[in-house]
Design a protein around this nucleic acid. Structure first.
Length: 666
RNA sequence: GUCUCGGUAGCUCAAUUGGAUAGAGUGUCGGCCUCCGGAGCCGAAGGUUGUGGGUUCGAAUCCCGCCCGGGACACCA
């Protein structure tokens, strides 16, 4: 009996937590007689765009008025006469063309906040409809060092996993690593011909990375050398053509031709330059040049090693088996540093045995046909076919991806699969999903969560000054190093430094990693963004550091007053919202659930960073003007302590969903 | 050439997917330290949302044309 009652209470207060939902429920009967599609109208009730419009705003009067052929303000007024909401809000106001502005009663706000004061979930209920979601992200190639290109997928994917879990879904994070590709042919070839035994013993990972880079470089060298005459000829011809066109009288048609030619010319120049760079790098080193001369067929031979591996050659399989743990350990090192965990790491090799069956099945269903020797799926609206088996009999990543979908449907029982992969592959996924649907996966939701490129300050993809891609490891090192300088400087400025050397290292790690992750997540994912250490580690503005600082300031209050946050728990709370600053902070804290919902509606973590920044921003004036220590009354002091504790947990929880940590002292 | 994503304050980015006077940060300028962490707070200036049309009560957002940029376009993943 008592258990039943408690369950009921629990569910009812959870349901009541979401003020917005509750407000919508109040509007439903008021709208019932006026419109057929009430839910659509209720959906137009939202948090106010600007605090001067109150706390919530209803935008439905204008479209509804149009349906009814009446004036919007009239319709709004009629709705208000039927609306029962005075136990929640001040009297609603009609403004502008017909907006309804709602301001919550402060006593209601205080009461709601009191209820969630010690709730770990900050009043956000777990979903009543949990789904099985597989999130496919990070997905590096093993045997190649991870670089800046893997950053976004890894960070965004991890945040989506954490947010989905928080919302109550059953999530499987899966790292679909490239462990069966051409790079293995390269390191096998490299291992046979260029291995340095002592380096191998000292650091197998480092040696594999060196071998990969070396073989790649030599292959590029020969390719560039072979291509050079054609590139030079191409460039000359482009210049010649451009010159000729420019001699002609200028009209709209020639103008267009000129701009087209200029673009082609620029592309040809870039291509030539890149080839020349590759040649210069090898020719600049006698050792490399000698190696290149000794291995003229290196690219082809490396490909053959890959083919042998795929064909089950025992020696190459043995090498693969020997290399894999080394490669995985190298990846794991970065993931544990980033504090990112995968439930599964099922790479391409795992699905290899299934590929023949996939193609057979596609063929049997009449989806795939042979064209120009390749097994293809032709899709309406796509010029290029989706190739599932190449002319030489090898399978492609299309095939692997289909096998993976099958596995996720049948074995993991997924309702939904998210692919956190950069936007250049959107055509691939569009074809993949279309094929999968026709193949029998129409029940499953498949989504490409795409994102843009990380750029340098020059507006081009982020590279080192020498033009190499930036290794992820060194990128993190640099961020942490810079964070350490900031932490040192700050603590040294104190009369009594608060941190030991070890603590400083720990804090620098938290601040540095947080900066990198936050900078990535606070941009909307589909746009490119400019990578800038100074901006992401700035102690002012919309950075992780600013949020972490706000957290540390709260901790400072408790430390100073010698009150543990733990000791507040379990005692009765009565939140008092005496000032505008307290009210603003309270409202902001209650919006957490809305922020989480909005993130998940389209997998956009930047909406959570926005909420965090607004929360830290709401806290600052409170901190400035509402002294806890010198509060007028004991009950006000207690109320403020609870508010502080809630604020700290909100920041910690919110940052946590982004994969970012906090520290008590910065 | 086709498809696709973009062009918003000096700079870096938002804009709850069609809602009010387009907002933040940074930078610039001007105010706040007998008071819980000044890594802070408050304020000001800064815009023809690439451009020309259209759709409607209402457009940065949707449609069409043009200009500029990124990317992808049969056997790499």
């Amino acid at each position: 009996m008592s258990r039943k009652i408690r369950l009921f209470e629990f569910r009812s207060w959870r349901a009541f937590m979401n003020l917005l939902t509750q407000i919508k429920q109040r509007f439903a009967p008021a709208l019932a007689g006026l419109a057929s599609d009430v839910p659509a109208l209720l959906d137009m009730i939202r948090p106010a765009q600007d605090a001067k419009f109150g706390d919530f705003q209803a935008n439905f009067a204008m479209p509804l008025a149009k349906q009814l052929g009446r004036s919007p303000r009239d319709v709004a007024a009629e709705v208000l006469t039927k609306l029962q909401i005075d136990d929640l809000c001040e009297s609603p106001e009609i403004a502008g063309p017909g907006f309804i502005n709602l301001r919550l009663r402060t006593d209601v706000l205080a009461e709601r906040l009191s209820r969630i004061a010690f709730d770990d979930r900050l009043g956000v209920p777990a979903t009543e409809a949990p789904r099985n979601v597989v999130v496919d992200f990070s997905s590096p190639n093993v045997a190649k060092p991870m670089h800046v290109g893997h950053l976004r997928s890894t960070v965004i994917g991890d945040s989506i996993v954490k947010t989905l879990r928080f919302a109550g879904h059953r999530v499987t994070s899966d790292n679909h690593i490239g462990d069966w590709g051409t790079q293995f042919g390269m390191i096998i070839y490299g291992y046979r011909h260029f291995r340095d035994e002592s380096s191998w013993r000292a650091s197998a990972v480092g040696e594999l990375a060196r071998l990969y880079k070396l073989v790649n470089q030599l292959s590029d060298y020969h390719a560039a050398k072979a291509l050079l005459p054609a590139l030079e000829k191409n460039l000359l011809e482009s210049r010649q053509k451009l010159h000729e066109i420019q001699q002609q009288p200028q009209d709209d048609r020639t103008k267009k031709l000129v701009s087209g030619m200029k673009k082609a010319l620029a592309a040809a120049e870039v291509e030539l330059q890149s080839a020349q760079d590759k040649l210069a790098k090898v020719e600049g080193s006698p050792a490399l040049l000698a190696a290149a001369a000794a291995h003229p067929e290196i690219a082809r031979r490396a490909r053959e090693e890959t083919a042998k591996l795929h064909a089950g050659d025992p020696e190459n399989t043995a090498l693969w088996t020997q290399f894999m743990p080394v490669c995985l350990a190298a990846l794991q090192q970065i993931y544990s540093r980033l504090n990112i965990h995968f439930d599964l790491t099922l790479g391409e090799s795992h699905f290899n045995p299934l590929l023949a069956g996939v193609v057979d099945s596609l063929q049997q269903q009449g989806l795939a046909t042979v064209s120009e020797g390749a097994m293809c799926v032709f899709l309406e609206g796509n010029a290029a076919p989706f190739i599932v088996r190449k002319t030489d009999g090898a399978y492609t990543y299309a095939t692997t991806d289909l096998a993976t979908i099958q596995y996720r449907r049948d074995t993991l029982q997924a309702d939904e699969v998210l692919y956190v992969v950069d936007s250049r592959q959107s055509e691939h996924f569009q074809q993949l999903f279309a094929t999968a649907r026709r193949w029998g996966c129409e029940q499953m939701s498949l989504r490409h969560v795409s994102f843009g490129t990380v750029m340098g300050s020059d507006g081009r993809p982020y590279k080192t000054r020498a033009g190499d891609t930036v290794g992820l490891e060194s990128l993190l090192d640099e961020a942490i190093l810079r964070a350490r300088r900031i932490v040192d400087e700050n603590d040294d400025r104190r009369e009594q430094p608060l941190l030991t050397a070890e603590e400083r290292s720990r804090v620098a790690e938290i601040v540095g990693l947080g900066a990198v992750k936050y900078a990535d997540l606070h941009h909307s994912r589909d746009s490119d963004y400019v990578f800038d250490y100074d901006k992401m580690l700035a102690t002012t503005g919309d950075t992780a550091t600013y949020m972490q600082y706000a957290y540390a300031r709260v901790c400072g209050i408790f430390r100073r007053m010698q009150i543990s946050r733990q000791s507040l728990q379990g005692q009765p709370v009565a939140i008092e919202l005496a000032t505008p600053e307290e009210r603003r902070l309270a409202l902001q804290l209650l919006m957490f659930g809305y922020a989480v919902d909005s993130v998940l509606s389209d997998y956009r973590p930047h909406l959570l960073t926005q909420w965090l920044f607004e929360t830290a921003n709401a806290f600052s004036p409170f901190f400035d003007r509402c002294s806890v220590q010198n509060a007028e009354t004991e009950s006000l002091q207690r109320s403020r302590l609870v508010l502080c504790d809630l604020m700290a947990r909100a920041i910690r929880t919110g940052l946590g969903l982004l994969g970012i940590d906090v520290a008590e002292v910065l």
